[in-house]
Design a protein around this nucleic acid. Structure first.
Length: 331
DNA sequence: AAGAACGCACGTTCAGTAGC
DNA sequence: GCTACTGAACGTGCGTTCTT
């Protein structure tokens, strides 16, 4: 059928396209396929992951240019027309007339849907408001009880973005513990991770040594596999008293201490050596943007240290030794 | 049908604090 | 003055559904 051929064409640009739903493939069929082909002609590959500084700049430029082209007077009006009931019809008309979608995604080799989302985040004045205060958290709970998941309404009441509110609420909706983990909690977490890994091993090697009564047996897993992504919401449920992000963080710290035991990373000479190594390797990768760094590869090269550990290490180095790091480019 | 919006799961980066 | 630990904001990527 038509969809199958589109899928085949897209595969060249998005290797994992076979796992994507018909619904989403359809959305990429029209505009994106054409755009990807154009980029290919110029020798530009489709990008994934974090937007680079360059790309963010390009989005700002595209938005600005579209505004001056159409005479719409703010990015918010352009990207959130429904917030301006009186003007929204005109805005919609101007957008279709001047090919909003093409213009906004110009020069950025990604599906336009993702570019559009990115633009909306950048230009939502209710975004980037920093930490939630205690009062805000209480308010959020109260308003949610009152209005349900009507984030738009709650957003108007609290001047936070709908995305931020929905995310925050999912974190605080059920009571969780804070502070140090108890022994009991830690044990629960380790059990949950083990259970998940067992299940994974079972589906990966069906009918092998794992098949019978494996629950009582020790589980052997290659080192690299320990860094693979885990189903955190499932683990959150099993732990019960902690949010998924807390579980992930805790697991990472357990992993770090277990895998670096004996290496005595804390000894000052080793710290120095690891830091120098990290900087050197990072330099050698010639990455032009933080999003281009392959942390898995890097942490392996440094000596089988967990990825998350290397990432925070790099962050610490950056903030303590690079003056004005916030205003600098990665390269 | 295009565009906009909602919802979920998980990844990355920034940041505060306890404790040595 | 440093690391380890903890917390959380911010971000991507998709499935899906509502609106225009």
């Amino acid at each position: 059928t038509d969809l199958d051929s589109v899928r085949q064409e897209l595969e060249e640009f998005i290797p994992h396209v076979k796992n994507i739903s018909d619904c989403s493939v359809k959305k990429m069929a029209g505009r994106d396929l054409m755009r990807f082909k154009e980029f290919k002609k110029q020798g530009i590959a489709v990008k994934f992951g974090r937007f680079t500084q360059k790309e963010n700049k390009q989005i700002r430029k595209n938005v600005e240019e579209f505004l001056s082209l159409t005479g719409i007077d703010s990015a918010e009006k352009l990207l959130y027309p429904s917030r301006y009931p009186n003007e929204k019809d005109t805005i919609y008309r101007l957008k279709t007339e001047h090919h909003f979608c093409e213009k906004i995604s110009e020069g950025i080799p990604r599906p336009w849907r993702l570019i559009y989302y990115r633009a909306r985040k950048i230009f939502d004045p209710n975004n980037y408001k920093g930490k939630y205060s205690k009062e805000e958290k209480e308010k959020l709970k109260k308003y949610q009880a009152l209005h349900g998941n009507d984030w738009k309404k709650i957003s108007e009441l609290m001047s936070r973005s709908t995305l931020s509110l929905a995310m925050k609420f999912s974190e605080i909706k059920s009571p969780i513990n804070y502070g140090s983990w108890t022994k009991e909690e830690t044990r629960k977490l380790m059990n949950a991770v083990e259970e998940v890994l067992r299940k994974r091993a079972r589906t990966e090697n069906p009918g092998s040594v794992f098949s019978l009564e494996e629950s009582s047996r020790d589980l052997w897993i290659e080192r690299e596999k320990l860094y693979q992504p885990l189903p955190w919401s499932e683990i959150e449920t099993k732990v019960g008293s902690r949010y998924w992000g807390q579980c992930k963080q805790k697991w990472s710290s357990i992993l770090t201490s277990k895998l670096t035991r004996g290496q005595e990373l804390h000894r000052s000479t080793n710290v120095l050596r690891t830091n120098i190594n990290l900087i050197k390797r990072l330099y050698e990768t010639k990455a032009e943007d933080a999003s281009e760094v392959n942390w898995d590869e890097l942490s392996n090269a440094i000596g089988g240290i967990p990825r998350a550990y290397v990432q925070t290490r790099f962050y610490k180095l950056k903030v303590s030794f690079v003056p004005l790091w916030k205003r600098r480019t990665f390269s």
